[in-house]
Amino acid sequence: MIKIENLCRDWNEFQIDHVNLDIKTGEYFVILGPSGSGKTLLLELIAGIWQVDSGDIYMDGENVTWTPLEKRGVGFVYQNYMLFPHKTVFENIAFGLNMRKVDKKEVKERVDNMMKLLSIDHLAHRLPRTLSGGEQQRTALARALIINPRVLLMDEPLSALDRKTRDGLTHEMKELHQKFNITMIHVTHNFDEALSLADRIAIMKEGKISQVGDTTEIFRHPKDKFVADFVGVENIIKGVASKYREKLTVIDTENISIYTTEQIVGPVHVTVRPEDIILSNKKVETSARNVFEGKITEISDNGAIIKLTIDVGEPIIVFLTRQSFIDMELNIGSHVWTYFKATAVHAF
């Protein structure tokens, strides 16, 4: 749907260096990278906000590299939303339709529908400065979506929001993606966001794409140290969360059940930091809620720290000091018990 070939652009301290991407129709595509990696610039190049130095951009098979941005039919949402401060919520959302000289009655109808869909219909006559961050973000999304763009480009759309609002909107963006069946490209430095939203992720570093793949691929098999360090997780498991009882959620991974104190339901990813996992040779009484028996499948010696992979139904990575490793007399195939608290489990 969107094909990017050998895209290059130098701009101040940022540069895009021979980027190639192939984004499928209807895909939720996340570009993940640290700040300064050029990911915003890449997004702006796709939108046509800047011109490329070399390379080509295709949308639906059409070469749009030199198409002016107002003719490209993309929606763009910035981190700070960039709502027009002198226009009301209604006028902001109606802007794209008015530019297309859509009939007044139809504009009203479509804007009203869009506002209802994003539950901001009660804000129609308010000016942007009177809105909360979440409300501004919804308005910005509505304004971009109403023109039925070929692709919705979003630059750190959730970063300016507080945790709670962000979680709510993340969920909603997933729904919007399905409802509109629209191709989305989302740029972020936050890997939680990438995990919960992306169909596929591209990791970007210093203007280059270093890896593209679905979430499991990226997090389980980082191609190089940069990706591994950047995504920064050892244990990442997919599952479905449901309420177990008051203040406790259970996540079913099909092989094991993991408990967490975080309140969440639906399909999730679970992470546990290796240093939060305790290992023992035999079963012990403990207050930890997550107790799994498993076999060591891999041992890698990193000097003072030994990294063990234990198959408990899902692969779990545990770190041990060299001394404990020797004391416990562990080998590949050894039976061990792993313990970790429900509070150590992060689900998103």
Binding site: E44, A47, G48, I49, P68, L69, E70, R72, V74, G75, F76, Y78, N80, M82, F84, P85, H86, F95, G96, M99, R100, R143, A144, I147, P149
Partner: peptide, 27 residues
């Protein structure tokens, strides 16, 4: 006036001179 606001207006279909008159100049 943040230049990105003008860019957003343009992605919504407003030409550059029109954007100047309806977004930048009023602000």
């Amino acid at each position: 006036v943040d230049p990105r606001m003008e860019k957003v207006a343009r992605t919504l279909g407003s030409g550059s001179l029109k954007t100047f008159f309806i977004i930048t100049l009023p602000l």
